[in-house]
């Protein structure tokens, strides 16, 4: 959080975000603030509403109530064209399963180039050079630019998905369990990469995960959710080392010692 002061306006400011599925609560009365260059971790067990919250912010689900101000506009009520434009320029979404975020029958280069072409890039050579550059930045051999994602390993697919999202230089990245389903050594490499990219590009990010190791490495601040509500927020180290809420204490103590 270097260089960020209290007086800077937040990049994203969420108030009272609520989403229910019929009678069941998805998430309720969520308030959060995200400052430029900051990574916010959202942790909680399965069914605690963290993915619902992220899906509402990304526009994948329609929220029932609340506001989410970004650059002076409420993204929850933004008209669809504007929201989709935001989603492919200033925002990026990283899905838990890379196949949800990639076009599996399109080459790696085409996948990375799609957002550029959607933004009006019409020079094949330039698009290809940018794609090669981005493959290298996510540690994929640029020689594999014409291979399809189906020929990639799970970790490579996830890194490709990240390159595809970051190629337009977004300001805000929403990540849903970015390391889910990957084995431990691949997870570590991915986290290392993400940490580097976030710092170098000055990205803001919201990372949803149930893995406390991920947020300790990646997040500046932490929000703990249980049964659709935020039960505790604070600096990552503070929350993890000195948990106040009973549920957070349980969560922290249930991590297996390494």
């Amino acid at each position: 959080m270097s260089g960020v002061t209290e007086s800077d306006p937040p990049l994203l400011s969420v108030r009272g975000l609520t989403k229910s599925y019929g009678g069941r609560i998805g998430c309720a009365g969520i308030d959060l603030e995200l400052w430029p260059g900051e990574v916010l971790g959202i942790v909680g067990e399965s069914g605690s509403g963290k993915s619902t919250l992220l899906a509402c912010l990304a526009g994948h689900l329609e929220a029932d109530a609340g506001t989410a101000l970004y650059a002076g506009r409420d993204v929850l009520t933004l008209p669809e064209p504007a929201r989709r434009r935001l989603g492919r320029t200033e925002w990026a979404f990283v899905h838990q399963h890379a196949r949800d975020g990639l076009r599996m029958n399109v080459s790696a280069g085409g996948n990375v180039g799609e957002r550029l072409m959607a933004g009006g890039a019409r020079h094949y050579g330039d698009i290809r050079r940018t794609a090669e550059d981005w493959l290298a930045r996510v540690e994929i051999d640029p020689a594999r630019i014409d291979d399809r994602p189906s020929q990639f390993s799970g970790g490579m697919q996830q890194r490709l998905q990240i390159a595809r999202g970051l190629v337009t230089g977004p300001k805000l990245v929403l990540m849903d369990e970015p390391t889910g389903g990957l084995d431990v050594s691949v997870q570590a490499r991915l986290l290392d990469l993400l940490r580097g990219l976030v710092r170098r590009m000055g990205l803001s990010a919201i990372v949803v995960t149930h893995d406390l190791g991920v947020v300790r490495l990646l997040a500046d601040r932490l929000m703990v959710m249980k049964d659709g509500r935020a039960v505790e927020t604070g600096l990552t180290d503070r929350v993890l080392d000195d948990p106040q809420h009973g549920y957070t204490q349980l969560l922290v103590s249930s991590v297996l010692p390494t």
């Binding site: 492919r88 085409g110 072409m117 959607a118 019409r122």
Partner: peptide
């Protein structure tokens, strides 16, 4: 919404 980036992805794939 005039989102035609995908059409160029097809042409990109052709050239690649």
């Amino acid at each position: 919404l005039e989102e035609y980036g995908l059409m160029h992805v097809k042409l990109y794939e052709d050239i690649a």
